[in-house]
Amino acid sequence: MYQTEYKRAGSLNEAAQLVAASGGEGKYVSGGMTLIPTMKQRLASPSLLVDLRHVEGHKGISVSGKTVTIKGGTTHAEIAASEELKSVVPGFAGLAQLIGDPAVRHMGTIGGSVANFDPAADYPAALLAMEATILTDKREVAASDFFLGLFETALDENEIVTGVRFEAPESSAYEKFRNPASRYAMCGVFVAKRGEGRVGVGVTGAGASGAFRWTEAENALSGRFDVSALDGLAVDEGEMISDLHGSAAYRANLVKVVAKRAARKAGASGGPEVSGPKTPGGDAP
């Protein structure tokens, strides 16, 4: 890691001022689960790190009727364990439980993940599918206007993600097919069955430009919330990631397969029962 300077902000205002004064060389660090590894690899070298983890009031989950608000400093573990979330939008809590590993979930935050927009980040799939609103210290932005491309968001320089807000869907689920090495999503799909028959489908890990809404699948499932509605559909291979872990063609296949499974888990009819293998012969000697 290159030399850097660390400062701990007490408020979002203070944090923004510190980074603004750094002349473009400063970065916010929240859980640091992406930034610190990147700095260790010497692939990032911010001269200043401003820690948001101790900012008062930057953490917390509130549910009001169907409206869910999660503050930026809330960790994945807190989201996964939240009884409120589990009751109103279990699919989203379940997604958080599948992020990284327990140690990562204890540190990593939703604000950091949303601001970074890694192509394999999990939250964006859900936030897109639920048409969530991204909250910053300056404004509110619709998720589809916020996530622009690989590691590219609508955030202005020095702008801080302060949270996300969304309407809890009637039902929702996230399915994730992991990269066997990194264990990040090679394909993750969030299906949200929302009011008035509208269905949202967000896909992460597969798209060459980051997470995206699969609108054809949304339309198909909105018309008929049955897994078979996806049968004739396909995503464009040309827009998929292709790397040593999976070609674009394979990822395109995954998107469809995983989407079907997420839909099924979210309550769509049809499709095979999801159950695990039986262990032969009972217990071993």
């Binding site: 394979y250 296949n253 995954l254 397969v257 995983v258 293998p277 262990t279 032969p280």
Partner: peptide
Amino acid sequence: PDTGKTEIVQ
């Protein structure tokens, strides 16, 4: 068969 993923069951 849909994903090609292998699980070792025993």
